[in-house]
Design a protein around this nucleic acid. Structure first.
Lengths: 160, 160
DNA sequence: CTTACATTTCAACCAATACTGAAATTTAAA
DNA sequence: TTTAAATTTCAGTATTGGTTGAAATGTAAG
């Protein structure tokens, strides 16, 4: 009974944590899965175990586990003589998610350059608005990438 | 004819730029409006003018102009003896949008602390996974906020 | 090869959200 | 106060995207 209460509390917690990961741009279920893998025991789980814990369908698990694998937010682990696949989360991947968002600034900058080209011919100051916007993202991107670099340096990470 | 072509190119450009602003978490139409206000001439426009340019309904304009005003991404300007309201974009607001996202890390950190409390009693290492995640966001938040501070310092902004 | 279990795919359903258009309301001029 | 123009509200509609469950496929053991 004690244990049941604790387990339920854990599931509630997974729910709220999952909602947060959803805001990273993931489907809700993918957020839940990642949250579950962050707190479950043992740390590696089969799709069936996760489905059971979250009360979700196998289909949804399959789809979202593939998604999370694709984004390298989880690892898929297989063993000889075992037809189950096991999944583990990679907490570090959250940094990469952030890094990708910052790199996205680059696309915007390109787009703004294009716009400046289009508007420069016009006699109005509209190009200035775009130039101002460009300045903002240019500076922010540099600063934020520097921040990330510090992170990598500080935590002695070796890849990506 | 020349002019029509240019105008159409501008509208296409607004469309792609708008798609970008959508990724900030805005409704698509709000993104379009902000993009339009970034390139239009004159820089201040009535809801009717924007609706005309974007081919959108008045209702949608009303809703999304209110939204953008609420987030301080645009200003609403009224004049005595004129029942129209005029709207102008605030390009600087994009910084604040970024800043708010970073502050959002704070909520996650609180949530992670809560989880660490829940799991600490358990004999497993699951709390360690959460602690690792906490470290990541704690460091990132500090670095990113430092980056923003640099921005404000550099561009001599006076508010927020 | 066959059986048993595990995973993936996919069509149908469902929920969330945005957009429209018309009616109601507000605002300024007559 | 009445009229005209602009804005807001809101019910209905469309669209998007996620989830389910069952059928198909894959995989290891017997």
């Amino acid at each position: 009974m004690e244990k049941d209460t604790k387990y339920k509390a854990k599931l509630d917690y997974v729910e709220s944590l999952g909602m947060f990961f959803e805001t990273l741009g993931l489907p809700r279920m993918a957020g839940r899965i990642f949250a579950w893998l962050l707190v479950c025991d043992p740390p590696h789980q089969t799709a069936a175990q996760i489905a059971e814990a979250l009360g979700a369908s196998r289909g949804s698990l399959s789809t979202n586990l593939r998604l999370l694998s694709h984004f390298k937010m989880i690892d898929k682990i297989c063993k000889r003589g075992d037809r189950s696949a096991y999944f583990v989360c990679r907490p570090d991947s959250l940094i990469d998610a952030t890094a990708n968002k910052i790199r996205f600034f680059d696309e915007l900058k390109k787009l703004l350059q294009k716009g400046i080209g289009i508007l420069e011919a016009e006699p109005f100051e509209s190009a200035d608005r775009l130039k101002g916007t460009y300045e903002i993202y240019d500076f922010l991107e540099i600063e934020l990438l520097r921040a990330l670099e510090n992170y990598y340096k500080n935590f002695n990470r070796d890849s990506e």
